[in-house]
Design a protein around this nucleic acid. Sequence first.
DNA 1: TCAAGTGAGGTTTTT
DNA 2: CCTCACTTGA
Length: 814
Amino acid sequence: MSPQNSLFDAAPVASAPPSSPLLAHLNPEQLAAVTLPPEHALILAGAGSGKTRVLTTRIAWLLQTGQVSPGGLMAVTFTNKAAKEMLLRLGTLLPVNVRGMWIGTFHGLCNRFLRAHWKLANLPQSFQILDTQDQLSAIKRLMKQYNVDDERFPAKQTQWFISGCKEDGLRPGMVEARDEETRKKVELYQLYEEQCQREGVVDFGELMLRSYELLRDNASVRDHYQRRFRHILIDEFQDTNKLQYAWIKMLCGEHNAVLAVGDDDQSIYAFRGARVGNMADFVREFQVRHQIKLEENYRSYSHILDSANELISHNQKRLGKTLRTSQGPGEPVRVIESASDFAEANWLVDEVKQLVRDQGTEPGFERKEIAVLYRSNAQSRVIETGLFNAGIPYRVYGGLRFFERAEIKHALAYLRLLENPNDDTSFLRVLNFPPRGIGARSVEQLQDAAKAAGCSLHDAVSTLSGKAGTNIAAFVAKIDVMREQTEAMTLREIIALVLAHSGLVEHYKADREGADRLENLEELVNAAESFVTQEGFGRDAVAMSPEQQVATLTQSPASQGLDLSRPLIQADDPLPPDAETGETLSPLAAFLSHAALEAGDNQAQAGQDAVQLMTVHSSKGLEFDAVFITGLEEGLFPHENSASDHEGLEEERRLMYVAITRARKRLYLSHSQTRMLHGQTRYNLRSRFLDELPEASLKWLTPKQQGFASPGLGGGSGGGYGARRENSSASWGSSGRSAPDFASYTAAAPAPLPPQKAEPPQGLRAGMKVFHNKFGEGKVLTVEGTSNDARAQVNFPRHGIKWLALSVAKLTPI
DNA sequence: TCAAGTGAGGTTTTT
DNA sequence: CCTCACTTGA
């Protein structure tokens, strides 16, 4: 390794930077990152280190110093939210018209690319995008048609297989199929592809894969984009999958500069194909000479950061990074043990009340600045019940988003049929919705006819005869008439007409519980309206000519230091070969892409001052004044499915790291002795992660108990926080039932009482080592049930994993 | 065609 | 225990 290649040399600024206001207030590392020379670089950006700021300032700096024109760079993110944020902040840094710039999500940019090159990509101009739901129903339909046993090949699994292949860049012919089962899946993959192609639809994976292949197979297109995008900036690089990495590589020729920004310690999406290893691969394959660490944290006090640092230091596979702050220690991290999940929720409710009540005085927390995090969605229920009964407003992240709602999907299906009559997924979705007397038999007949003729359902209708055909023919006629009627209409008018003529509005009006759905349909019209005005109905979906780009740029307000007279686009920046710039995508088609790629807000009633409930995964990228991390128990967090192998455990630890680093001022870590799971009471040990934190930064509100050794000891009651120190010698279960149960919060709907006794059967807890007369030594994995029903799952090194009924088997703790 | 019943399965999720 | 997807019966 050459000296230049040494790790994390904060690269000196090439030449003295212009003392631009852009660069003010950046710390040395940030400044170095922003002003890096135009070469490949990796920024290792810790949580809360100003990553987005560096990215946007870098773009602004490149533009301002004339190193690149707005059309000459591309910035890629994973979520629409991140992309919007980037555009927004860029707009505040520079008077640049960001419309038309290639800043967006991987999928959004691929969509734009494929729209510009639809012919080369072998797609219809207005190809439709299948979301995950659509994809699954398309696969189900396919499997039915080919009489595939869905017991042996569940549609979900097939979907997972297909998506997995695409993420790895594999077409059916490239998949290595050793066993019969895989061969069958590959066959289904092949058939699915043919079906999508026939119907003119692409799924999310296809957007990426086809873009990649087009670049790979078409030298002139590839050359064009390689020459065009001198600067490529990638956000959240640790989340890229194999295909995305290959795609980036494909966009890189001799003279490109890729700026990859990421944090290996926050890589929590391996389960969906993300490869942290891409960071190391990037450094090696791109011969990255500049690596910069951003370790200064602007979010949290040092007790919180010390906890995060210490925890993550237990991971072996790391690039290495330590967060620091100049904000001072702050409060210690509070740790609490409860007797049950109910008690935990109760305590949490009390604590939240306290935090909110203190508002105005110190510390003073707004409800929306309080987050409750958990490992899995199922955990939210108890907490919701508690908050609900206490009358505390709360908001749960992660339900159905706007464009995923059934009524919206129905409306979109009609709209899609206007654009593309061959979209069988949409056809089937609304063929009999609202009900118009088309039964399963008729549908099957139609499907058979279509299969025989090798055409779409829409086209097969004419071949249909008899009574069954008339209703279907009427449906098709209705769609065709709508298409004609809407030809010259605005998007808003089109949607209004479709809503009325499809019968959707009528149907929901008749439905007692249809009011909400009607409201959403109303909202769809609004969404279309604002799409048209804000997005310029997707004009940016088509590659802009240089002239257009200069034009939009000069339209923007007077710039500070941006020389508008200089030619912004080089003369040698021609339109991509075969770009279909003449034909504009229809507003409707653009809106439909938008609906598929941007499913809408993930939270109900935004803007309200409500406590935020979400999984740790969805908390990534967010921050709150106060954070509760709940359910810190072995088996839950780290999750039992991940704890067995080293890789999985390290990812769980990163997840915990993400959770901790969400907190600005105050952090609570909570675990419970018992928890209701799958209808059974489980007895879990506290998470090992709690033992991986620095004692000096913690404050145990309930006494810390010794490891696995004394299951019968200790004190956690569900009650008062911080006031429970006195019962350190009390046997749990017999004391500390002082917490009010939910019934005391609610007059109307009493919730179930917490269990009377939290005594694990025979004192067994997960994680304990036990001895069995026949099997020898083993480790307890789980304990379930009570008294006579109780059983334990034990892993015996010699005999494997066994379930043992505790009323029969003799297990001695050792 | 719709409502009630049955049975399986229950980490994490964006596009 | 709870949710959902799918089947069955009127």
